[in-house]
Amino acid sequence: MRKPTRKTKRRNRICSRKAYHHQISRRNKKEGRKRSRKRFKHRKTELQCPEIFSLDSNFDEVVSALAEVREQSKVQRNKSSEQVFILLQNIQEISPAGALVLVAEIFRWTKIPTARRLKAASPSQWNPEVRKLLNDMGFFELLGLGAFAQMNTNNEGIRYVKFRTGKKSDGEAPVELLTDDLEPLVGEMPDNHYLYAAVTEAMTNVRQHAYQHDRVVTNWWLSASHHAEKEEVRILVYDQGSGIPGTLPKKLTQDVVSILRNDHAGLIEKAHDLARSASKEEHRGHGLKRDVRGYLERLNCCGYYRVISLRGEYTYKKLASGTSAEKHNHDNPLKGTLIEWSLTLPNE
């Protein structure tokens, strides 16, 4: 065997020193990971909810709370093992639209494969009415807790319908909503063929336009509510897509953008009056006007039709004295589009 030269000895020394340091650093990293995992296991994040969870009276706080849930769900996508609690005990009042967008946000969370289950802290401390309404809407089943048995509260006059969700323009869902859920509560809905057309058209719009970038969830959510005292029925369709102002065809936005700029409410209104389809085909994109808003126009009762999309809110009212439209731009955006028909049922 040849005697190692001085150069070889030096190289061997360096290599063994490097191997030693590599081994130490791997051990430290492994222990560090263990320590951080242990630390995360005991750490928790709490998501606050506003007292009034209503898009009518507390829009900005509600959408900020929802944005916080969305942000946390993004962290969960990065395999964080931190436990997240949503503090629903703060909510003293919740509207049907508020409940549906909350349910949809939780649904989205459940579809992230790496996410830990979102927990709702202290359900026993919640406002009983809020708990009942969320239970009706299927909230607890989403959280993996199963539905509570019949809950009785002081306010028995308001009923929410369990949400339905899907990805396709599913004709069965509006039929079930009308016949299984609303008919037992209010009897046959007025002009139900047009209501069916309006809801399926809203679903078709979700399928064709709403989700251009999102890959986590591409669903629509459908629900309804009934207020017995006011004889009011609300039907809601929601999606978490790019929003109507974000999906207008480029040519159309160029024409109107100079006037409307960031006026999302104005863009929603324009989407009804002009063909809004991103497909650039002249024959498409009339559904919002003809079916979705058209349902309220055809009815013989009073009510309103409302679209909230990103920062814009467009309301079309039908009163005994005539029709009117209102537009409003909010400070914070709702991530997606909510369509709501609210009808005051005519007395028999």
């Binding site: 509006p174 058209e201 024959h283």
Partner: peptide, 20 residues
């Protein structure tokens, strides 16, 4: 026997006979 028909469907189905 139909529950209702959306205008997108009607346009594609019947307008489509002419266009397509």
């Amino acid at each position: 026997g139909v529950a209702g028909l959306g205008s997108s469907f009607l346009e594609e189905a019947f307008g489509g006979l002419v266009r397509v």
